[in-house]
Design a protein around this nucleic acid. Sequence first.
RNA 1: GGAGAGAUGGCUGAGUGGUCUAAAGCGCUCGCCUCGAAAGCGAGUGGGCGGGUAGUCCCUGCCCCGUGAGUUCGAAUCUCACUCUCUCCGCCA
Length: 426
Amino acid sequence: MLDLKLIRSNPEIVRDALRKRGEDAPLDELLRADEERRGTLYEVEQLKRRRNEVSEEIARMKRDGRDASALITEMREVSDKIKAMDERVRALDARISELLLAIPNIPHESVPVGKDETENVEVRRWGKPREFDFEPKAHWDIGTDLGILDFERARKITGSRFTVFKGAGARLVRALVSFMIDLHTREHGYTEVYPPFLVNRDSMVGTGQLPKFAEDMFHCEGTDFYLVPTAEVPVTNLYRGEILDADQLPIYHVAYTACFRAEAGAAGRDTRGLIRQHEFDKVELVKFVKPETSYEELEKLVADAEDVLKRLGLPYRVVMMCTGDVGFAAAKKYDPEVWMPSYGRYVEISSCSNFEAFQARRADIKYRPGPGAKPEYVHTLNGSGLAVGRTLAAILENYQEKDGSVVIPEVLRPYMGGLERIERCR
RNA sequence: GGAGAGAUGGCUGAGUGGUCUAAAGCGCUCGCCUCGAAAGCGAGUGGGCGGGUAGUCCCUGCCCCGUGAGUUCGAAUCUCACUCUCUCCGCCA
């Protein structure tokens, strides 16, 4: 959420940001509610001050054995008034935070203005898509033919958009998770975290999934638990409500979790294969940093995600999202995209965002800049490093051979017991 | 799931209706002392929302003793509900 003081003093900045995003939010109602709240607050505080003073006076009179009944009668009325006004302030507070939670982040000045994904900007490419001397197959056919992916039985035991991995396929999932976590912990300075896959509602609000995107989430009926849509949620909320020491920053965490998404509106898109699933695995990078460093941290974060693709030898490009596609909570976002032969184009495999203080304000995560200094909000960032299912799909497609087998990228072989090639599994 | 105990500031821990703007100790910061340090002495030491202000300085008001509601002129203190933590028992990968 945004700083209410900023909205109050510079509403035109917020209005401009909304226009660039192509979104609408009830700014005027928010400003009106804020003004009424402050007015009412001032009046009720004056009354409370009076109550405090008179209460002291009553105590003094009683101690001295004098009669205080006139003052007590008067205070009874004041007390009623306070109760009513407190009620009003509470109602306004609730409305204000509701409105505040519905306003998206302000895009950074370096973000290109555009209406939707067609106006995103490619910033670089790495690697060359392979030229096949045979007709390359899609990963769902490769995996099914090899016997390492089983979509049909997944449909039986759970439903559509789920997958069973088998044999070398199952092992490849584990190999990818381990390879990615090892790379980020050993070479990029991240500390590994293994969080719960169920989180409570406060955590979902803290990172911005709720209240606005409830229909994308799986909720455990009769409980306060939600299945995590990304490790970003439990890991960012690790420090919810805390004031960190300046020398703890920056904090870098890497976490593997399964991710669960209802994707209600996505029916009909990417119906085959591993690209769009209700459950998938992901290794996520999360950073907590000082505000003045967050944009250089974003560049490093993207480079860390790209490093996974480079070492796996997968051709990719990086796209900078425009204002119309940057996402509700992000101020700036890069999407690394991997080359997918079956699609004949690059497909999103990571998403790296700087949220500035947007999540920190919702989740109340601060740090103390120096001894005795006032706490300030940290900046939070996160990015996939990478989405495991899509990475596996990209490996199958980019490393397939004419005979239907798949060569395992060299960096993964130690994690596959030295296996160099996946062949038909029974 | 059953029984019991508890929740107070960075930490320990007092406080059972009105000088609680929460004792004391520890920790931390600064100062004195010292060649330097320790000890000792002195001072300071949270968060939030408003107002005065252009202001992160300063002045000032209100709120915060797990959360929420209630009783009362007045609640850390009394009542109710809830949450969480700990101990023991049961069940369990």
